[in-house]
């Protein structure tokens, strides 16, 4: 086993973070119109980018595991804390619709000049303090674990890993097909948002 390399210092963090932020910005994920367009089903870039990333990293991790480069027992897989995970996802989704961003994209939005993102980030801090205040009342039930540690979808559905990845890829390809056929609205319909030179938010043509 070669990896994980235990490369966890500042240089590792900054380099990988730069890659992450650079990709998010180039995907258009600093732009709240593109981001929230996914929730109104007028722009599928968020779904397409995220699901492609999940499928690609999943395939790469499995290849690396096959060749003995990494073992899944040495990488972090979150356990299901049912209510915490589900309600947390819902709150982050509502925050995304209301504020225009999720935590990561708000950082990219701020760095591309969007000053409203400062308030979103301040809001994250306030929400964190609210959680700190209510934690004694909710901590025990939201953090109750369901199922075994690091439960995976293949374990849950009793399916082989390749079948789960194939299923995800099939969903991704189907969405891509419908977007290209115009059955789902593609990202190219996003036009300039307020205060921006026209064409700023124009997405690629499908």
């Amino acid at each position: 086993m070669i990896a994980p390399l235990d490369f966890v210092g500042p240089i590792s963090g900054i380099l990988l973070g730069v890659g992450f932020g650079f990709v998010l910005e180039n995907a258009g994920f600093g732009n709240p119109e593109i981001l929230t367009g996914q929730l109104r089903f007028t722009n599928w870039a968020v779904f397409q980018t995220m699901f492609t990333a999940i499928v690609v990293s999943s395939i790469l991790l499995n290849i690396a595991a096959y060749f003995g480069v990494i073992s899944f027992s040495n990488i972090f897989i979150p356990s299901v804390l049912f209510w915490g995970t589900l309600l947390g996802g819902m709150f982050v989704g509502i925050g995304f619709a209301v504020g225009g961003y999720c935590p990561g994209t708000s950082v990219v939005a701020l760095m591309s000049g969007r000053l409203d993102a400062i308030l979103f980030i301040v809001g994250i801090g306030v929400g964190t303090l609210v959680f700190n205040a209510i934690y004694p009342m909710i901590g025990s039930w939201i953090y109750t674990q369901t199922g075994p540690d690091a439960l995976t979808v293949p374990q849950l559905l009793h399916m082989p890993v390749w079948a789960v990845i194939a299923l995800l890829a099939a969903v991704l390809i189907a969405v891509g097909y419908f977007v290209s056929r115009g059955k789902l609205t593609a990202g190219c319909q996003v036009s300039a948002s307020v205060g921006v030179p026209s064409g700023v938010a124009v997405h690629h043509k499908q």
């Binding site: 709150f91 935590p103 809001g123 964190t128």
Partner: peptide, 14 residues
């Protein structure tokens, strides 16, 4: 923006 951030920050701790 600030309300969305608040809900988001709370949710991320959940």
């Amino acid at each position: 923006a600030i309300s969305g951030g608040l809900v988001s920050g709370l949710g991320a701790r959940f």
